[in-house]
């Protein structure tokens, strides 16, 4: 069974077609990337998948169950998790409290168990030393890790990451790649990654979907995508294929 599926998604904003007949399939435990130039509709696709935007046409299925019109918080409870492009931590909460907001969907936990569970995630993510710190006192890179921890605290089956490497330095990107690979191995997560950092995409993704002007122009393995003339022309650039070769 597919972990997440979008079928024939159309989304218009006035006269602009943000998404036109877009399909996306993510198998259980699969790492998928969605790439494309700015304005291609990648974040809109994540918004449709998470219920922050409703599609004009098409269907979204999570583990085979239609969730197209389901409220966002119910989708999260059903197994979706998401981070934002520009990092939207709760600025006036501590690191622990931020992670607790995600863990709180596990309603049957007592308050102390909920704190313990949140601390476990924080420790896994290497943030134990700042658990009680005000989040805005952390570096931007560590804040992004808190946001990822917060999404993981929801115990998602499918994790949607919207440009998690944006604003990180190369060392932090390497750490993020290692951490994502570990998490995936540990929790069997399916991941949908939107990212402009092609090094990260090619290292992690098993399958890549390419959007341009709201349309899917290609789908395939990293090797196939790197050799696809339509993708090279629309996004990667002709020089990319030569650089990789």
């Amino acid at each position: 069974m597919n972990a997440l599926e979008a079928r024939g998604i159309h989304k218009r904003y006035g006269g602009l077609a943000a998404l036109a007949d877009v399909d996306l399939t993510v198998k259980n435990g699969q790492f998928v990337a969605v790439i494309g130039p700015n304005g291609a509709g990648k974040s809109t696709l994540l918004n449709v998948l998470t219920g922050l935007a409703m599609p004009d046409e098409g269907q979204v299925l999570l583990a085979g169950q239609a969730i197209t019109r389901m409220a966002t918080n119910k989708r999260i409870r059903a197994g979706l998790g998401r981070t934002f492009q520009h990092g939207r931590v709760f600025a006036r909460l501590s690191v622990l409290e931020n992670v607790m907001t995600g863990a709180a969907i596990r309603g049957r936990l007592s308050e102390s168990d909920l704190r313990d569970f949140s601390m476990e995630i924080i420790e896994q993510m290497g943030l134990a030393d700042v658990a009680h710190e005000a989040i805005m006192s952390l570096s931007y890179g560590r804040r992004r890790m808190v946001e990822l921890s917060r999404a993981l605290a929801c115990r998602p089956h499918v994790l949607l990451l919207d440009e998690p490497a944006a604003g990180l330095n190369s060392g932090e990107v390497d750490q993020l790649i290692d951490r994502l690979a570990e998490l995936r191995a540990m929790h069997g997560l399916a991941v949908v990654l939107i990212e402009h950092n092609m090094g990260m995409v090619m290292r992690l993704a098993e399958r890549i979907f390419v959007l341009n002007f709201g349309c899917k122009i290609a789908e395939g393995t990293p090797a196939e995508i790197q050799a696809d003339p339509a993708v090279l022309s629309a996004y990667l650039g002709e020089g990319y294929a030569h650089a990789v070769v």
């Binding site: 999260i76 409870r77 709180a104």
Partner: peptide
């Protein structure tokens, strides 16, 4: 919006 995305 972020709170909804935490399932709250």
């Amino acid at each position: 919006q972020a709170a909804r995305l935490m399932g709250l």
